[in-house]
Design a protein around this nucleic acid. Structure first.
Lengths: 207, 207
DNA sequence: GTCTATACATCGATAGAC
DNA sequence: GTCTATCGATGTATAGAC
């Protein structure tokens, strides 16, 4: 039932949607995400403001599409890595990629990781991409032997903190990007140390 | 020249300002900070919208007053601690206080630590309070023997990360609050370990 | 200090013509 | 799909009565 004409129509529509999203990110970087104006946005893609409603149901729907778009870019970035690395190196690269991505795309960071647009909540479809992203972290950690919930929580907090400080105090720079390696090393050493302590205790008990 | 009448007038004015600020926080918690409407706010304090301009020069000026108000509350909270503690315990209490404060006051967290209100920038006077707050962290760290910039950066990132995750994933809860102790312990152990390594190296070199 | 009234600009959103 | 026209809500600001 999908004729060639329908395919063309959909492709054209998707291309226009992509163009609108790209311009929306530009506007968000320039004026702040919450300050995006649909009239501005329309003007940038050669449309009047009401015509945008052909491509997005509402402004919140636009934010939702941007949310999904941002996570797709992030997943593409961290998924590009070779997998045949040792766990600590892979984990470090993962963290560095994220912090760098957020440093270079503060507007993406705001939408993806801060929840500051009044009324915006990602749709289930978009949220699935966010979950996929967190699952990647869990996989990296499992490969490094880290599986306890408190350790996962501590790790995600450290990644969130590095990105937050980078974005807030040195946007576009590398001041906290450079701390990815030392941070991961500190974290894995701590997990290791605690494992040895509990093993030693168990040994003492069973001996 | 400050007559008793002038004192009364100023006191009344300050009280009204405080009331407006309190209601503004309420509105921010309910609708999001950026969605505060001056007409709503006026209604909550028994005033029409234009009358608010008697107390604040503009909406951004209101945000600025909220920014200062939030930091004063935070400084009051972390300053309430007894000082005669050992450094690690003091540092842990400091971190726990901050994460808990943000967990219970997500709108304060948004204004104080995320910079997401388009066009808002704290005035020099208000910013001074933020600096005072960071200086407190520096003092706690110095007492624990931590003074290198990278270590300060790592520490602030961890505090920011714990608060961020707490606010984003368990607002009002304690899931990341409970990690304050283990986090500080991990951090100080890491600093200590690195100090020993460099000391050992220096000894090797000089021997 | 507080009010009413009003102006102006901006915004998201909708109706309906083409 | 794209447009014009329009709506209601918003923030900003001012004038002027009480």
């Amino acid at each position: 039932m999908t004729s060639a004409a329908a395919d063309r129509r959909r492709a054209s529509r998707d291309a226009k949607r992509a163009k609108i999203l790209a311009e929306a990110w530009e506007l968000g970087k320039r004026d702040g995400l919450a300050a995006i104006s649909l009239r501005d946005l329309g003007g940038r893609v050669g449309l009047r403001q009401p015509s945008l409603y052909v491509y997005f149901e509402s402004k919140l729907d636009l934010y939702d599409a941007m949310f999904a778009d941002g996570y797709r870019q992030l997943l593409e970035l961290v998924g590009r890595r070779r997998r045949a690395q040792e766990p600590q190196a892979a984990l470090t690269a993962y963290v560095r990629d994220i912090v760098r991505f957020c440093s270079e795309n503060v507007e993406r960071h705001q939408l993806l990781f801060q929840r500051t647009i009044p009324g915006f909540e990602p749709s289930p479809d978009s949220y699935r991409l966010a979950v996929e992203f967190y699952d990647l972290a869990r996989a990296h950690l499992a490969a490094a032997g880290v599986t306890r919930r408190n350790d996962l929580d501590l790790f995600t907090a450290m990644v969130a903190g590095l990105t937050h400080q980078q974005v807030a105090n040195d946007p576009g720079g590398r001041r906290w990007v450079r701390l990815a390696g030392p941070t991961v090393a500190m974290f894995l050493a701590d997990v290791q140390r605690r494992r040895q302590v509990s093993t030693a205790t168990a040994r003492r008990v069973t001996t």
